[in-house]
Nucleic acid binder design. Structure first.
Lengths: 160, 160
DNA sequence: TAATTTCCGAGTAATTTAGTCAACTACTGG
DNA sequence: CCAGTAGTTGACTAAATTACTCGGAAATTA
């Protein structure tokens, strides 16, 4: 379980998707523009997200991506493991290098921490992130300076 | 807040130090050998750990590093932020790029998650990691192929 | 058929990781 | 005081990863 900017990009993009969930496919070009992530990079990330079955794609005009499950069912851990290669564990994956108990112990400690973080991130879903934000800062939603129709706020008052 | 192999190395090394806490300075050469981390790389990491005042150094023969505080007072978050450069936040640090509310919102969501992870890792101390491991898997401690007393393996008596 | 948008792979610059090397300072024991 | 140990610093480097580009398919709609 790593936590890099790559994963951050993926989570941000998925969040963008979650906010528009229910309004038909969202194009990568749109996400690219809104979140300032290069389109080609998004293509790479969404290739992985699709293979991990977190998103579904629709080709052609009017196409794009949608969440493959509801926002409650997609955790941050899901997203991060989808885009970050396994990368394997410690160089001694439990079998090698570990001659005496001591070495293994320090090792276990890390593995343990890793699992703890993973468990934690498994409980943080796209839905909970959005909900948390709404609870924290409602005026952001109300402060609309532009005259654009709010199709942005796909699911306004916690109706998700 | 990133979570990379670099941070993992640092945590592992600090764990090694914590296990020997109270027995005088520990040399980097020793950590290098036990944890299979290159000495020069450890030098880099401990330079940062020292500047972050997480460890103290003693020069000369018999010298080495010791924890600057007790294991309860050093969190995983402390260690990781010490070795990982700030890396800054999202490219739009709250001021730039954020033209419309929408962009800022998705942004906040990430910042929020980031803070949550950080808070969580701030509560995980070196001490709790060691304690957790003891509680979880006692037989590791009891599985002594060597004639060393299990608790006393922190002492130089059980030197490898 | 033309436009749109996903899909896919090869390639690439910049950054980070992990590590080397060499010189230097501080300290200890004899 | 001298030799050896061990931390301290900085510059430098190979390899990996990140973030991104490009070019072209393939699918879908109008």
């Amino acid at each position: 379980m790593r936590l890099t900017t790559k994963g951050r990009f993926a989570v941000t993009a998925m969040l963008d998707l979650a906010l528009r969930h229910g309004n038909g496919p969202v194009t990568l070009a749109g996400i690219s523009e809104r979140q300032s992530i290069s389109l080609s990079y998004l293509e790479q990330l969404f290739g992985k997200l699709r293979r991990a079955e977190l998103v579904e794609s629709v080709r052609g005009p009017g196409g794009g991506y949608t969440l493959a499950k509801s926002a409650e069912q997609i955790s941050v851990a899901d997203i991060i493991t989808a885009v970050d290669e396994p990368v394997d564990a410690t160089q001694c994956g439990g079998r090698e290098n570990c001659h005496d108990n001591h070495r293994c112990m320090t090792h276990d400690l890390w593995t343990n921490l890793n699992a703890t973080i993973f468990d934690y991130l498994s409980k943080v879903t796209l839905f909970s992130l959005v909900a948390e934000q709404h609870a924290k800062d409602v005026n952001v939603m109300q402060d609309k300076r532009e005259a654009t129709p709010q199709r942005a706020r796909v699911t306004p008052t916690g109706a998700m």
